[in-house]
Amino acid sequence: MEQNLQNIIEILQNHSGLSDDEKAKLMAYLKEADKKITIVEFKLDRTEKVKRTTAILLEETIEELEQKRKAIEETNAALKKSLEELKAAQAQLIQSEKMASLGELTAGIAHEIQNPLNFVNNFSEVSYEMIDEMWEEIEKEDLEEAKALANDIKSNLEKILHHGKRADTIVKGMLQHSRSSAGVKEPTDINALADEYLRLAYHGLRAKDKSFNAELKTDFDNSIGIIHIIPQDIGRVILNLITNAFYVVDEKKNSGIENYEPTVSVSTKKEGNKIIITVKDNGNGIPQKVLDKIFQPFFTTKPTGQGTGLGLSLSYDIVKAHGGELKVETEQGKGSVFVIQIPIKFN
């Protein structure tokens, strides 16, 4: 029994003013009080123990959390690093994709530069002769004939300038195409750009594969005039779409369908404050299962070595960066149309 209670009991027992009955009652109360104290003490003790265990557990948890935090921090840093590496790899991929498509273009470029250069040389040569003739006419005082010659020479000079510029555009385009730095928006004749890339893609493919041929159709909206775009980027989009179109029409032709005329059409159109560029083929269309994935990077149905599957995903990004949209409409067995829409500020 608790000491204080014990003391009280002793005093009680020696107390004479209380009856035995009263003493017995008090004793019973005291015993009851003692029992309660014992229970409270036990409970307190237990609480104390729980508190200690909890404290220990808490400490352990804190330590664990701290370790986890450190681990997350490390993971974070590692993630950041791999993200940077990924970005670098992506930039490199884009660059090598650019270079690869440039490689594909080289033969086309050679052909496309040779033609205007031939014109420059030929028109210069013939003009040179015509000046001599003009002098002869002047000496003969046949001024009518001399004037006619002068007019012809003048139009020849225009042709020389035109073809010189044409070659210039191609070389510039090629340099821009391979440039790794981000391009800037420039005033661009979208029709000339589309036409040039169509010819480049066509002659590039022809140079690689002599059996390749396709009908090229163009329908350009001459009211478009000059628009502000990043020419090498939009050029790449057009090139990617045309290359894909050539691939499918060639594939269809080689499958041996009778009376099939592989045809690829490119058109431009101004609609409100939008420019619509379409690239259409009469290939086999795109099955739904493939269609769901065509804009994903690295998705390709071409045999290894023939496609990286980056063409459409890069094109999509480029068009989006111009604030526009790249969409496709396709019909099984009939062909596909890729539609580029870009909003335009005209000035």
Partner: peptide, 8 residues
């Protein structure tokens, strides 16, 4: 332009 060229 081949036409103009040949004609000249």
């Amino acid at each position: 332009d081949i036409q103009t060229l040949f004609e000249q």
